[in-house]
């Protein structure tokens, strides 16, 4: 390296460096990655949209939906009411009385809806997710809802359970078994309409 004691890089150099790097990193790099992904992974890159048998978009496999009907499996409590543009967790601390109150109400509702004794409810049905749009529930949380869904839909319990296994993404050795609630409910609806 040659040495220049007086090299005091001018402000103009900094400015030109910023413009060049911003063009490379802030425009070109995202554009290349995005264009490439759109070609190679067309479905994923547009948000993993889910279509029904008529080709209508019914949601995204990655975005949980609110379910209130008794014939549907219900997802987790959401601090964002499942609004994906307002994603949020509750951010309530374990010692916050508001959290205890919310959990108690949720537990009573589940006890009434699904006949599960308070004290035996799968915790993910009481605890709000981090994103507010968690698309999954645990297999245990799905199983406690089987009798109600089966009754409301006049569908044999084994068929409902089969639908749960089909909608379970187990994540291999690195993941937790997780039931995708939208996919599960969509499959049940399609089955009810006589679709495969």
């Amino acid at each position: 390296m040659t040495v220049s004691m007086t090299t005091r890089a001018s402000l103009l150099t900094s400015l030109r460096m910023m413009v060049l790097l911003a063009a490379l990193l802030g425009l070109l790099y995202p554009f290349v990655v995005t264009s490439l992904s759109e070609v190679v992974f067309p479905s994923q890159s547009r948000g993993s949209l889910v279509y029904d048998e008529n080709g209508t978009i019914v949601g995204s496999a990655l975005v949980g939906q609110p379910f209130v009907g008794a014939e549907y499996f219900h997802g987790r409590p959401s601090a964002a009411n499942y609004a994906p543009d307002q994603v949020s967790g509750s951010n309530l601390s374990p010692g916050n009385a508001t959290l205890r109150e919310r959990a108690l109400q949720e537990a009573r509702a589940i006890e009434e809806r699904d006949g599960v004794t308070i004290g035996e409810i799968p915790v993910d049905l009481l605890a709000a997710s981090g994103s507010g749009i968690d698309p999954h529930i645990s297999p245990q949380a799905a199983l406690i809802q089987v009798p109600r869904v089966s009754r409301e839909r006049n569908m044999p319990i084994t068929e409902v359970k089969n639908a749960i296994s089909s909608a379970t993404e187990n994540g291999g050795i690195v993941g937790q078994p997780a039931v995708n609630v939208l996919k599960l409910n969509l499959a049940l609806d399609e089955q009810a309409r006589g679709m495969p």
Binding site: L99, L104, V123, A127, H136
Partner: peptide, 25 residues
Amino acid sequence: MPNAAFIGLSASASPNMEGKEVRFG
């Protein structure tokens, strides 16, 4: 460990799932 807010409501010995996603645990 359990989250104090869910003790007595959720199945015993449940982990703290408030603010966490099912697919991660």
